[in-house]
């Protein structure tokens, strides 16, 4: 299965978990308390986020803390950025054509 940032943020529950973890690190139970889905379902989502490199799980005593790692999210904006540049080049050429057209009209 795909394990990258896009897979990680494709699910609304996982997006909500990341939003929650952005503020503070939390125990697995702490995360689960904020969701109406089952505890195993929460664990599954956290596991996917972990495999996608967006969270780390740190054992501390009896507890397991989940911490967000947001440097990976940069990949998303980078991904769109290249597509944006493609359109930018295209529209910059259109600008030149529009400029020529306006010169001719005068």
């Amino acid at each position: 299965m795909r394990r990258d940032v896009f897979q990680a943020i494709a699910d609304p529950n996982r997006r909500a978990m990341l939003a929650l973890l952005a503020r503070q690190r939390m125990t697995l139970n702490g995360v689960a308390e904020n969701f109406r889905i089952s505890r195993p379902a929460v664990s599954r989502h956290i596991k996917i986020l972990k495999e996608c490199g967006l969270v780390v799980v740190i054992p501390q005593g009896r507890e397991r803390f989940v911490e967000a790692r947001f440097d990976k999210l940069g990949e998303v904006s980078d991904w769109l950025e290249k597509y944006r540049q493609l359109w930018e080049q295209r529209f910059n050429r259109l600008d030149e054509i529009l400029l020529e057209m306006q010169k001719k009209e005068k």
């Binding site: 494709a10 769109l80 944006r84 359109w87 930018e88 529209f91 910059n92």
Partner: peptide, 12 residues
């Protein structure tokens, strides 16, 4: 150009 392209593609 000073006119910037924006691309919006929400996940999912």
């Amino acid at each position: 150009s000073n006119n910037k392209v924006t691309v919006t593609a929400e996940p999912g």
